[in-house]
């Protein structure tokens, strides 16, 4: 018999797809062979469970920030371990870039330059996008992440995935259709 889910476990699980997309977007093609986004997210969520007493009453926004920081540390630790194992100079560069990326991500998600309501709305949309990306089939998801979250060109995506450009364009189009449909349905709820 499966154990009954506690409210905290539900709270944590809501962030799993978001963190997964973030981790997938963070892991560059260079690291993809050595790193598994789902492992990192699993480790992050396990740590959240371990700190349940501290995190249970935390406001959702702060909890999300905590999770991102935890994911960041896990990702950086793994990258550093790989660097030491493989003595790869390029990875040193990646580790510092990754840390910068997380810092910038934090700034974007908490920025208070426009009105707070706009920020809340935008962050909400970003979270929904990140969450629904996990509902896409893997190839569509990878293509959309590479295109919209990492800014790759059609040719670069095709090269990286070993597909033709029309095939990637098809993946992108269908991926966007699914995403927008999911977001619009959610908007109507």
């Amino acid at each position: 018999m499966e154990p009954k889910e506690t409210p905290f476990a539900t709270k944590i699980e809501r962030f799993r797809p978001i963190l997964l997309t973030l981790a997938e977007a963070m892991i560059s093609p260079l690291l993809r062979r050595d790193l598994e986004a789902s492992d990192l997210v699993q480790q992050t969520l396990m740590e959240a469970h371990q700190h349940a007493d501290k995190l249970a009453d935390m406001e959702s926004k702060i909890f999300y920030s905590w999770l991102r920081t935890c994911l960041k540390h896990n990702l950086l630790d793994t990258v550093k371990r790989l660097t030491t194992q493989k003595q790869d100079v390029r990875r040193h560069y990646i580790a510092s870039d990754l840390a910068d990326s997380f810092d910038r991500l934090d700034k974007v998600l908490v920025a208070d330059q426009t009105s707070p309501s706009q920020i809340v709305q935008r962050n909400e949309q970003v979270s929904i996008l990140l969450q629904h990306l996990q509902d896409l089939p893997p190839n569509q998801r990878t293509a959309v992440i590479m295109k919209h979250l990492r800014g790759y060109s059609l040719r670069d995506i095709a090269e990286s995935l070993g597909l033709t450009e029309p095939a990637v364009a098809g993946l992108l189009h269908r991926g966007r259709q699914h995403l927008v449909a999911a977001m619009e349905t959610r908007g109507q709820d």
């Binding site: 977007a25 990754l98 935008r122 919209h148 189009h173 966007r176 259709q177």
Partner: peptide, 23 residues
């Protein structure tokens, strides 16, 4: 339709993309 889909996804993703593209 294509333009609408592209813009909708891209607008939401833009700040994240800018943050993630560290290099």
């Amino acid at each position: 339709e294509h333009k609408r889909l592209f813009q909708m996804v891209d607008e939401i993703a833009a700040p994240i993309r800018t943050a993630l593209c560290s290099t």
